[in-house]
């Protein structure tokens, strides 16, 4: 146990980076995910195709491959960003495919009549999506989004591959000196579990408050 207390500053710093990655990437994924959903349910065939291609591409490639490819590949064509920025962008882009699919299932759960009524009173496609469909769609996908957020927290550990010292990497570095993997990784694991539990708690609350009684 004392090994955790001795290295608390380094581990804490790692946790802070994990939280930064999580918050920024989830925000990015949410914004991009809405765009992807809009493309996927759009009445224009080309846009739908683009949306499908996006989802298929990013859901079918491992995040680690995308991270390493972006980090080492993009500088070769002159695009170079700070490691943290690169990681946030890549994780956002990747998770957006999942957020987009969750949202789309929400959109599909909104009855067809809602969309038709919205169009009938003169709203445009974007307006009907924004004011009528998405607010109802979001309520039904709170839990899936929470699951994506939890998966995203765990996925941030992969950012260690591109030099970011988040919680897992910080734990590895401490273990390198102390050679006590069990207490160190159990400690890091508990921190992840607490974060995931927190997300679960929040989504549970949100779901109950936002429930639609049909």
């Amino acid at each position: 146990m004392s090994v955790l207390l001795d290295h608390l500053p380094e581990l804490w710093q790692g946790l802070v980076v994990t939280l930064q990655l999580t918050a920024a990437s989830f925000l990015g994924a949410a914004v991009l995910g809405v765009v992807v959903t809009a493309l996927r349910v759009s009445p224009v065939r080309v846009l739908r195709a683009i949306g499908t291609a996006y989802v298929e591409t990013f859901q079918n490639l491992p995040l680690l491959v995308l991270l390493v490819l972006a980090f080492f590949g993009l500088p070769e064509i002159g695009v170079k960003a700070e490691p943290l920025t690169t990681a946030i962008v890549v994780i956002s882009v990747y998770e957006a495919a999942y957020v987009g699919e969750a949202l789309r299932s929400g959109v599909n759960s909104v009855s067809k009549g809602q969309g038709e009524a919205a169009r009938a009173i003169g709203l445009t496609f974007t307006q009907s999506l924004r004011h009528v469909i998405l607010p109802q769609a979001l309520r039904t996908v709170v839990q899936p989004l929470g699951n994506i957020a939890i998966a995203l927290i765990m996925n941030t550990a992969l950012a260690g591959a591109v030099s970011i010292v988040e919680l897992t990497t910080a734990a590895k570095n401490v273990n390198l000196v102390e050679a006590q993997p069990i207490p160190i990784f159990v400690g890091a694991g508990i921190a992840y579990a607490l974060l995931a539990a927190l997300v679960g708690l929040v989504t549970g609350r949100l779901e109950r408050r936002l429930v639609i009684l049909r």
Partner: peptide, 22 residues
């Protein structure tokens, strides 16, 4: 990552910023 270089750099050049790769 996970090499003895990390503690060695921390000891001899404490102000260095270490970036690690697998």
């Amino acid at each position: 990552a996970n090499t003895p270089a990390i503690p060695a750099i921390k000891k001899l050049a404490p102000q260095a910023e270490i970036v690690t790769f697998g």
